[in-house]
Amino acid sequence: MAGLVFLGRLGDLAGAAEIAMPMARTTALAVVMDRLPPALIAGLRSPKVRVAVNGELVPAEQPLDALMIADADEIAFLPPVSGG
């Protein structure tokens, strides 16, 4: 299982803060995302959304589709933040 974590408003789009995704083999993120509902995919693909894999932020300029996701990886989708 890979864990997809949705922060902020993305959790509303996903209907859950986290989704466990069965993984038969290491798979490109584009393929993993294709299994999600279209409205959620659109939200995740916003240029304002950052991604972290296993707690490491993916550089903003790095294309996400080719990221290889292994079983037990945690992928977090991080929309614009707001604290204080």
């Binding site: 922060l7 408003r9 509303d12 933040v81 707001s82 604290g83 204080g84």
Partner: peptide
């Protein structure tokens, strides 16, 4: 930096409904 560049997400409840807040 805490307001707009730290890893927090904030929403508020008004009239029973939650709304996400962006900076």
């Amino acid at each position: 930096h805490l307001k707009s560049q730290s890893w927090f997400w904030k929403r508020e409840k008004r009239a029973g409904t939650w709304h996400w807040i962006e900076p």
